[in-house]
Design a protein around this nucleic acid. Structure first.
Lengths: 185, 185
DNA sequence: CCCTTGAAGCAACTCCTTCGCCTTAAGCCG
DNA sequence: CGGCTTAAGGCGAAGGAGTTGCTTCAAGGG
């Protein structure tokens, strides 16, 4: 049984804050469970019991940082909404901190639930954009099509392939997806 | 300077074999560096110096196991070649050991080189299939298109999204890619 | 054949990690 | 409002993982 309002919640927040602070101050490599525990004002065994090990804790923190902070901006049309969102998504994910968070989120995630949360965040943003398009009466692709044709290629390159990723790549994926959906004529 | 023929190579092979054996005997969770070192007949410090930590060692072993063992089968046409390869690829990657290897390969990979190797394996297999199609005089998509539209969606779902993946999903991706390439008429 | 040098062996030390036991406090129920 | 139940955190000890400096070995070059 979870007890969301009490000491557990305070400990969780305190530990997460300690991770963020220490990472900013001393860098990722310096993080250890005893160090985090001391900063958070808890004993190491508390962290080990709740998170298992350092990686799972870092994975939790990383997923929280990958949560989108706002709904995608409304530019008045599906194409511009998707382009802007895809570009911003790619830029954030491809940045050094973004890559680090993705790596952490995947590494300490035995059952895949944190990775699932990441894709759920993206799917939610995509859903907002598509619902908006439907409200406007625009023809719009299915959310699964957007995930397969736009999100997946970006994330695959990010995780599996070396080299930089430019905003133009995101735009190209959006163009290809939308033009495939609405053939000229 | 690498010294491929000498003691270093023997140590590497011995350590990799120890990882494979112990994983089969006692399971992933039981693996520790000192245990592997003892089985391989080396001292723990040797492993720490060469691989850094347990995760990087497991990442190396996982990448080796993800290496394709044979060229994709030749079924006489691009469509059937791609379908068969994609189905087999998905089946192997979605299996419990496949998922475990992918997870390990990504987790202990600070610079992304092991992940890059995984995508290079897939790209190589795809390249063989496309070259074969070109030899036959078939119209064939670019390798990048296949990576973006077929490999990426499968791997994205595998890594980021919960739930099973069926062979029919792979077939559908191949169909969509090829029909987009060669519109009827 | 000896020299250079990168890599492995060894040993000692640090400190992460685990575990059993006790204490605390959140939520429930009378 | 006050005692009860039970997750969850605190504490300390024991065990083992991870680190390091120094030594020893062998592969490749002169």
């Amino acid at each position: 049984m979870t007890r969301p309002g009490g000491r557990s919640a305070r400990v969780q927040e305190s530990v997460h804050a300690a991770v963020r602070d220490l990472e900013a101050e001393q860098g990722r490599g310096a993080l250890t469970v005893p160090l985090i525990a001391a900063r958070a004002g808890v004993t190491p065994s508390t962290i080990y019991r709740r998170w298992g090990d350092l990686q799972e804790l870092l994975s939790d923190v990383a997923v929280e940082r990958l949560r989108p902070e706002a709904e995608p901006a409304d530019h008045g049309a599906l194409r511009t909404d998707l382009e802007a969102w895809a570009e911003q998504f790619l830029e954030e994910m491809a940045s050094p901190p973004g890559r680090a968070y993705i790596r952490d989120a995947l590494a300490g995630d035995p059952d895949g639930s944190n990775a699932g949360q990441c894709s759920a965040y993206a799917a939610e943003q995509v859903g907002v954009i598509l619902a908006r398009a439907a409200d406007r009466g625009e023809q719009a692709p299915d959310a699964e099509v957007v995930m397969d044709h736009i999100v997946a290629p970006m994330m695959y390159r990010l995780v599996f392939r070396p080299g930089p990723l430019e905003a133009s790549y995101a735009r190209g994926l959006v163009e290809a997806t939308l033009s495939g959906l609405m053939p000229p004529g």
